[in-house]
Amino acid sequence: MMEGVQPTAFSFIGQLDSNNLEKLKIMTTIYKIFIAGLVLLFVGVMITSCTSTKDTYANATEVEDEFKIEKSGAQMWGEACNRCHLAPSPADYNDTDWTTISLHMRVRANLTEKEITKIETFLKSAN
């Protein structure tokens, strides 16, 4: 040890040989990568948090959607069927027949899947 020189926390560096110095540099690099990772993680968590918050808002909107007044199958039956002919009486066919007729009318009248599904469900429930 040199006389008159106050030892510092890093004074041991001078005592390291080249091999250990190389190891130290690697450790320092790992440390920097670790810190960078932490920063990235923090930023990521922040972004994810914001996104999650946004999702929550989106969910809230979906919840509101549930309260939208959806058309019933009966209403769609009245609207869609009457576009061409008088709306049929549900009692005139059984469930099996309505399944067949629904597929036929879906294509013939170019109805949407939602329309025909709701109308078919209504007809089967009301016959």
Binding site: V107, N110, L111, T112, E113, K114, E115
Partner: peptide, 15 residues
């Protein structure tokens, strides 16, 4: 080829 789309309230069909 034919089909239909729901556009919210309005609807569109094609062939």
């Amino acid at each position: 080829l034919r089909g239909a789309f729901e556009l919210g309230g309005p609807k569109l069909n094609y062939s």
